[in-house]
Design a protein around this nucleic acid. Structure first.
Lengths: 353, 353
DNA sequence: CGCAGTCTTTACATCGATGTAAAAGACAGC
DNA sequence: GCTGTCTTTTACATCGATGTAAAGACTGCG
C-alpha cells in the first residue's frame, strides 16, 4: 500500500481529505476553528492513513520537542531506578517523554551533557549531579532549563532536595540514642574529595555535626569513600573498614544500596545485626523494608520529589525569566529492625567484642 | 551577548568563519573534504559561539534522530534497572541515546507506544512486552524497527531472549535434586492468564515440564500469579500461598525481586531459609548475591543481552529488509545458599512441619 | 601561459509542520 | 441583489541542517 519505509505526512492526509495541509494542522493543534464536516473528513483521513505527526519537524518549527532529559550517576542503583520511575510517571502526566543519561562511568559525561550535543533535542533537563558544581552554571545562558536534584552548593539553577545534612545529623542522633558510640560513615570521608561532592558532602557534614553536638570525636579511621553507590560498592567500603581493624558499633550508610552491601559484608565477617552493629541508610528504597534485617532509613516521598522537579522544570520551560527556585521535600527517619540497640560493637580484628 | 533564548545556528557559524553554511556542515559531518585552514576557521567559530547542532533539524533532514526507545513494564524492578543501565551503555557506545517508557501502569500504553505518536521521533525501539503478542505485529509495516526482549510467541520481529522455559525446567530439576518435592510457582498460574503472557508463560511452562518429567503432580494450590514483579509483589504472592495453608518445601520465583519478597514473607512467618524452604529466582540482579540468604538464580550476562539487542536494532535500522532474527543468550543456574537442601518443608498453617 | 582535471566551496532545494496574511466563502441586513 | 462582517480555508515563508549540482580555485603539464 504505502511505499515501504516512509510514513504519511500532513500533505498526504490533506490530499485525501481534499483540504490544504494547514487545515490538517488546525485540526491537530486546535489553533483555529474548523467546521464540523471538514474536521470529520480530516480525522477519517488521518485514521485511514495511520498518520502520526513527525515530531522532528514539529520540534524544528516551534522549538520544542516534548522530551526532557534525566541524568543520573548510575542507573543500576536502587534509588536511581525509583527516581527514574517517578520521573517517567510525572512526565507522562504532563505529556512529556524522558530521555535517560548516565554520568558515572566517565566524569566528562556529566559536563558534556549539559554543555554539548544532545542538549538541543531536549526541552529541559533533570540532573542528579555527582561533582558538578560550577561547570553547569558557567554556561547557564546557553543552556536549556535545568533542575538539579540533590544538594549542590549553588543557587543559580532550580533545584529539589531533601535536607541531607540535617537528615544525616538526625540519623546520627538516632544511632547515639540507641546506644551507639563509634559510628562509621560509609560513603564519604573528610580527607579526599569527601566534602566537595554534592550530596555526599552534605551527608558527611551532617554526620560530623551529629558527632560534634554529642562531643564525640570524628575518627578518619571510621570514614570511607564509596565511589560507586551500589550494593557491591557498599560491601567493598565496609570491607575496607573491617580490614583496617577499626572498632565500631554502628554504620551510617549514605544510601540504602550501600547499607545493604555493608550488612552483607558485616554478616559474612560474623557480625550479628543489629545485636553487634546498628545500620542506618538513606532513601527508603523498596528493598530496605524487605531486607533480611529490615533497614532503618531516611524516608521521603519519591513521587513527590519527582513531581516537584517536573513542576519547576515545566514552569521554567514556559518562562525562562523566573528567578532560581529551590524546593525542599520533607524527610522522616523510619526506624526499623536494623537499629534496635544497644549494639555490642564489632571489629574486623576478630569475632564480636 | 546572544539574544536570550536562541542558540547559534550553522548560519551564524558560517558568517563568523566567512564561509557558506554547507561548509560548516561538511566540517561537522565529514561528508566532503575541507581544506585545513578553512576547517580551522570553522572549528574556531563553532567554539567561540558554543555552537551545538539542532537535532530536530538534522533529524528532519535525514530522517534519523539518533534516539531509540526502551519500553519496560516497571522501571522500579531490579531487572529493569539493570537492563536500562546496560541498554544505555550499549546505546552510548553506538552514538545513540535512550528514551524510556513504562508500560505496566496502563495496559493500553504498551499498545499505544508501538502504534502511536512518539514513535516518530525515535529511530527504533526495544520492547520488553508483558502481554503484547499480536498487536505489535499488526502494524508492523508502519512501525520503526523493533527488537523484543523476552519470550514472545511470534517470529515476525527481531528478538533477544534467554530460553526461559528450559531455564525454569533446570531450576525445578535443581530444586528436586536438592530434595524438594512440593515446589511453589511464584509468578504465574495455569488458570487465569498464566500461559498467555510472554515471559511469564514460558517460565510457567518450564516449571510444569520440570514437574512432569519427575512425574510429580502440578498442584494449582502451589501456583500464584504476581501482577507486579517487584519485591512487594513477591511478598504479597507468597502471603497468598501461606494463607491458603499450602504445604511446600521450595519456591521457584519468576524474578529475583519476587524471590526477595517471598523470602522476606517466609521469614516473617517463621520459616528458616534454606533449612525449611529452598528458594530460586531468575535474572541474577546485583541484589541476589547480597541477600540475607544469598539467592540461587538463573544468571545471564545483562550487558551481552543489551548489546545483542542493539546490534539487531542498528542493523535493522540500516536495512529494514532483513528477515526477522532471534538471538538466544546463554544462561546458567547459579547455586547459592538459598537452595542448600534438603528442606524440611513449611506450611502457612503452623510452624515448620 | 593556458587548459584539462581535481579539489573546495557555493547556491539552492528539501525534509514536515505551522504561523502569517490574504483569499474565499457564509451569512445577515437593507 | 448587494455590501459588510465574520468565519473558514488557502498560499507562502519559515524553522536549521544537508544532499545535489554547479561554480570557483588550484594543480600539473604541455
Amino acid at each position: 500500500m504505502t511505499p515501504p519505509s516512509s510514513r504519511p505526512t500532513m500533505r498526504d492526509v490533506a490530499e485525501r481529505a481534499r483540504v490544504s495541509p494547514k487545515t490538517v494542522s488546525n485540526v491537530l493543534t486546535g489553533t483555529a476553528q474548523v467546521r464540523e464536516p471538514t474536521r470529520l473528513r480530516v480525522e477519517q483521513a488521518m485514521r485511514e492513513l495511520d498518520f502520526v505527526p513527525n515530531l522532528s519537524a514539529r520540534g524544528l518549527r516551534n522549538g520544542r520537542s516534548g522530551v526532557i532529559g534525566l541524568a543520573q550517576p548510575d542507573l543500576r542503583a536502587a534509588f536511581s531506578a525509583s527516581m527514574t520511575h517517578a520521573v517517567v510517571e510525572a512526565a507522562h502526566a504532563r505529556g512529556l517523554v524522558v530521555q535517560v543519561e548516565e554520568t558515572a562511568a566517565e566524569p566528562a559525561r556529566e559536563r558534556d551533557l549539559v554543555t554539548r550535543a544532545r542538549t538541543h533535542l531536549i526541552d529541559g533537563m533533570i540532573l542528579n549531579p555527582v561533582r558538578l558544581q560550577d561547570s553547569v552554571v558557567e554556561h547557564l545562558d546557553h543552556l536549556p532549563p535545568i533542575v538539579l536534584i540533590g544538594e549542590v552548593e549553588q543557587h543559580r539553577t532550580d533545584r529539589v532536595f531533601i535536607n541531607s545534612r540535617s537528615a544525616a545529623r538526625d540519623a546520627v542522633r538516632h544511632l547515639l540514642a540507641r546506644g551507639a558510640r563509634r559510628i562509621v560513615a560509609l560513603g564519604g570521608a573528610e580527607h579526599g574529595a569527601g566534602l566537595d561532592k554534592a550530596t555526599q558532602g552534605q551527608r558527611l557534614r551532617g554526620y560530623l555535626a551529629g558527632l560534634a553536638e554529642a562531643e564525640l570525636p570524628a575518627s578518619p579511621e571510621l570514614q570511607v569513600e564509596v565511589p560507586e553507590w551500589t550494593i557491591a560498592g557498599g560491601a567493598a567500603g565496609m570491607r575496607e573498614i573491617l580490614e583496617r581493624g577499626a572498632e565500631f558499633d554502628a554504620v551510617l550508610a549514605f544510601t540504602d544500596s550501600i547499607a545493604l552491601g555493608a550488612m552483607h559484608e558485616l554478616r559474612s565477617w560474623g557480625a550479628r545485626l543489629p545485636e553487634d552493629v546498628l545500620v542506618c541508610g538513606f532513601d527508603d528504597v523498596e528493598h530496605a523494608r524487605f531486607a533480611g534485617t529490615p533497614l532503618t532509613t531516611i524516608a521521603f516521598d519519591h513521587q513527590a520529589y519527582a513531581n516537584a522537579a517536573l513542576d519547576l522544570l515545566t514552569s521554567r520551560m514556559r518562562d525562562r525569566g523566573l528567578p532560581p527556585r529551590a524546593q525542599e521535600i520533607p524527610y522522616e527517619l523510619l526506624a526499623r529492625t536494623s537499629t534496635q540497640g544497644p549494639p555490642a560493637g564489632f571489629s574486623g580484628k576478630n569475632s564480636p567484642i
